[in-house]
């Protein structure tokens, strides 16, 4: 079943057309990778999907519902969460607070109920405790215990990447968009990241779309791969087929594709 359908989206910035008439569809439960050389338009696709950019034309539908042009917070609420190529964390807040922000939408108490926050049996306190438990589950899942109460700017880069992943997971999304999850990680951290991504799909059943330059990671995790260049689709298919494709090799010429 197709959960995310992108149809003929176009996005330009002044003279540059970053995405040109691109279409693809992601099935529920798969790990779908998007590859392409620098500047191919991969991140722009994510930004269009989660509402940070409004596509010039084309439609994006999620779970059968048209989400084109909605605000990012509406799209997040609908069940799409993401990470960023260059980390977007709440850097002065602690790991725990970052994860609790992942629970923001699910934390349901009003500003009036907040007034009774200090009483153990109030709706607000119960909600806070419930959401805290959910956040702790994510901390446990990603083994973030040692960093729980530290402001995230003080954490090593690899851990910050995990916190961002954790925040996206805490949202309990139906689909997770990961923009270069392994960028800047060393070999060992990258192996761990592969493990987490597989775990997220296998144990939590979350559909994953991942943009990645590291071909080993792409090979290890992908069910299907989409290669793009200059904002256009080159090929789509299994890992082996895509990485063997002449147009992909040509696009990467100068960069080792393997």
């Amino acid at each position: 079943m197709e959960i995310l359908v992108v149809e003929n989206i176009v996005k330009g910035f002044g003279g540059v057309t970053a995405v040109q008439d691109l279409s693809f569809a992601v099935s529920k439960g798969e790990i779908y990778s998007i590859i392409g050389p620098n500047g191919a338009g991969k991140s722009t696709v994510f930004n269009c999907i989660n509402g940070l950019y409004r596509p010039d034309s084309g439609t994006i539908s999620f779970g059968g519902r048209d989400i084109t042009g909605l605000n990012p917070d509406k799209i997040a609420t609908a069940g799409i969460s993401r990470t960023f190529q260059n980390l977007e964390l709440f850097s002065r807040m602690t790991t725990l607070q970052n994860l609790l922000l992942g629970r923001h939408v699910s934390t349901t108490y009003s500003i009036w109920q907040m007034l009774t926050f200090n009483f153990r049996n109030s709706k607000a306190a119960k909600q806070e405790i419930l959401q805290r438990e959910k956040a702790e589950d994510v901390i446990e899942f990603l083994e973030l215990e040692p960093y729980r109460d530290r402001p995230v700017f003080s954490l090593p880069y690899g851990v910050q990447k995990l916190v961002e992943l954790g925040r996206a997971l805490a949202m309990e999304p139906d689909i997770l968009l990961l923009d270069e999850p392994a960028a800047g990680l060393n070999h060992e951290e990258r192996q761990d990241m592969i493990f987490w991504i597989q775990d997220i799909r296998n144990e939590l059943g979350i559909t994953i779309v991942v943009i990645e330059h590291n071909m080993q990671l792409v090979k290890d995790i992908s069910d299907r791969v989409l290669a793009i260049n200059f904002g256009q689709k080159l090929v789509e298919g299994s890992v082996e087929d895509v990485l063997r494709d002449q147009s992909v090799i040509r696009a990467y010429l100068g960069e080792p594709a393997l």
Partner: peptide, 17 residues
Amino acid sequence: RAFQAIRDSDIAASVTG
């Protein structure tokens, strides 16, 4: 928490809903 999130990164704040 939402206020502080906006202070630290309004992009991240909006994608967390």
